[in-house]
Amino acid sequence: MKILVGVKRVVDYNVRVRVKPDGSGVALDGVKMSINPFDEIALEEALRIRERGQATEVIAVAIGPEEVQTQLRSALAMGADRAILVKCDAAVEPRDVARTLLAVIGQEGIGLAILGKQAIDDDAGQTGQMLAALWDRPQVSFASKIDIKDGVAVAMREVDSGIETIEVDLPAVITSDLRLNEPRYIKLPDIMKAKKKPLAITDMATLGVSLAPQFKVLKTDAPPQRARGIMVKDVPELVAELKKRGVLS
């Protein structure tokens, strides 16, 4: 079984992004970029499944400009067997990402796709579920545990009311939640090895996908700031303050 893992290049999660004063977007110049943290978790899970002998190959797939090769090399260093970059300089909406991944799935004969549950830049959280819909296969979103056996995945999902366990037939799409695993650290020799691993570059046209963006972003604003608060010196003062504000009776 081949596993596809989606890799998105995003602003590093430690960076506090700033909105450009002209409202045209967020300032990305010189900002540190990384693999979307949820995608790292997805990749780690794929590697563990392969290491248990339940998959033959892990393929990291990214969509984006030339620079995304850096993140794909990191994915290879983590342990992916090979990588595919679908070159595209335009912003790609989740629906088009799903259509593109579906084309790769068809080409590669993928048995399991693991994606992050959301990317920490656009926070859309759509691609996995859309991909599953287009592929007409099961989805396990927000997975916190995955067991694969005899063509079936039994997975735990973090839902608002607790932990749900579902069973899906493979092929399927799984999206990773935070606690699915803790991704491994990349060691120096792995970085060297990754340089020799195959990284294929293709594009939308070759895959037969044409972008069909639906939304127009009219502007980007900074969020409203909360007014500066006050400090109290002890518990009685805190209680008095909260009563004064009417939030405690």
């Binding site: 506090r16 967020v26 926070d123 604003d221 969020p223």
Partner: peptide
């Protein structure tokens, strides 16, 4: 809608 964990808010238009 919010992006970047609410550190930016975008206005989007749909056809």
């Amino acid at each position: 809608r919010p992006i970047y964990a609410g550190n930016a808010i975008i206005t989007v238009e749909s056809p």
